[in-house]
């Protein structure tokens, strides 16, 4: 589904991603871990199409397309979804309001008919239950006055509504208490199918108690320096990152 090869990306003069290689297949959950500042959010942003970053070399192939050639909205319509690390507030734009437009843009792109109001509301009801988000929040200005947990749940709610093929969760766990974490993780797990894939970017292992990854990668200094299975996450939790860095330095 996704194949990242030797990806380099910079912001201004500064190179942040220094040769990322990663392959994600349908049905898989990948966790990307690493110390602060290693480039995790940058990777997520580059995949979603944020224009602040310049890709200097390498390629990203997504479902046989050159992902880097697509605009952010084309990526979304092809099924890429980014749950933001810091979901912004947009005064005057309600979640319902832009999601309705978004869903229908995506459906149009796929040659499907627009969702009528009744089906939209039905889907909304169903999905808001899934992530335990109060429906009244959805007709308020996006994230305005929302708590940290509500903002993150709103991201997962949008993901549930848009049914992406590839979901990228950027530090969705940061700032969440254990209840909110469980709700968010539960939402992600319920949305898992053999046809979609998830990349979970996280700083801590605790989210991975709830969302069990098939693969764990350690990103450091713009490169993936170690990959493994869920046991690697536990080992990192116990021993920190220094041993991985030391190992990488030897190679």
């Amino acid at each position: 589904m996704l194949k990242i090869e030797n990806l380099h990306a910079s912001i201004g003069e500064k190179e942040i991603l220094k040769g990322i290689n990663l392959t994600v297949n349908p049905g898989e959950v990948h966790a990307i871990m690493g110390p602060n500042g290693s480039g995790k959010s940058t990777l997520a942003s580059v995949l979603a199409g944020r224009e602040d970053y310049e890709v200097t070399s390498g390629s990203v192939t997504y479902r046989d397309m050159d992902l880097l050639e697509l605009s952010p909205e084309e990526r979304a319509r092809e099924g890429v979804f980014l749950a933001f690390q810091y979901p912004i507030e947009i005064p005057g734009v309600t979640t319902i309001n832009f999601l309705k437009t978004a869903i229908n843009e995506i459906r149009k792109h796929r040659g499907e008919e627009a969702l009528d109001a009744v089906s939209f509301l039905k889907r909304m009801k169903e999905k808001s239950k899934l992530v335990e988000i109060d429906q009244s929040l959805l007709s308020r200005s996006l994230n305005e006055g929302f708590s940290g947990g509500e903002k993150k749940r709103n991201e997962i709610f949008q993901m549930a509504m848009l049914e992406p093929r590839l979901a990228i969760l950027d530090e969705t766990d940061s700032g969440l208490d254990i209840d909110a974490l469980r709700i968010v993780a539960n939402g992600v797990n319920l949305l898992k199918t053999p046809n979609n894939a998830t990349i979970v970017v996280t700083h801590y292992q605790r989210l991975l108690d709830y969302i069990v990854p098939d693969f764990v990668h350690v990103l450091w200094n713009g490169k993936i320096i170690k990959s493994g299975t869920k046991e690697l996450a536990l080992e990192l939790e116990e021993k920190g990152y220094d041993w991985v860095k030391a190992e990488a330095a030897l190679v």
């Binding site: 909205e73 979304a76 979804f81 947009i90 734009v93 832009f98 437009t101 978004a102 869903i103 949008q158």
Partner: peptide, 28 residues
């Protein structure tokens, strides 16, 4: 730029995103 990117990342094209934001600005 941030809200424009946010809306585009959900599938809205740039013009629609801008229009939505301008309307929101006026709606207050």
């Amino acid at each position: 730029e941030e809200p424009i990117f946010y809306l585009r990342s959900r599938g809205l094209d740039e013009a629609t995103a801008k229009q939505m934001l301008v309307q929101a600005f006026a709606s207050e």
